[in-house]
Amino acid sequence: MARKLPEIATSSMADISFLLLTFFLLTSSIDTDLGLSRRLPPLPDDIPPPPVKQRNVFVVLVNAYDMLLVEGKPGNIKTLREDAKEFFLNPNNDPNLSERRKMETIEHIGPYERSKGVISLQNDRGTSYKTYIAVQNELTAAFNEMRDDLSIEKFGVKFDDLTNEDYRKAIQEAIPVAISEAEPKDIGGKD
């Protein structure tokens, strides 16, 4: 007759797994990496950049005291998004805001007049990183909102919810993210 095996004590297993759990809690961080993605331009070469008309450039300057100058006027971070959107969309064909290209047919969207506008962003070496990110964020938000509007108009869903890759490409073609960063200046002098 087989002898009955003694039971293995499992109560300490909980302790061991608790130990492991605490170890992982301490060594890991939950933060998923979030951020603003950008693509740096290649180093300038000898080829001069294509000429851009003054009215097609939306100039944003940030000085060492974190103050904004938008299109030659003191700007506010709260209105920057709306200003940028108005500059690109130019609903009233204001001669001071961006021009439109000739009517083109973009696949899936149909005839569309793309804006010729470009945002030129320049900051000082003394500008704080926080303000820089705030400005970048507002400008990105302006593009995202314009894309959303167009996407809802054409496809009925927001740009982020578009699953069809061709549709996404079409929207990206119609509204490219045109942010150009000028070489920074050192005027504030408090690096």
Partner: peptide, 25 residues
């Protein structure tokens, strides 16, 4: 942090051709 040091890093990245960046926020 002031942008001066960030700009220097960005210039350095442009020199070595690492163009894809992400500002963690």
């Amino acid at each position: 942090v002031k942008m001066g040091i960030v700009t220097d890093v960005k210039q350095e990245l442009r020199k070595v051709g690492a163009f894809k960046i992400n500002y963690s926020t």
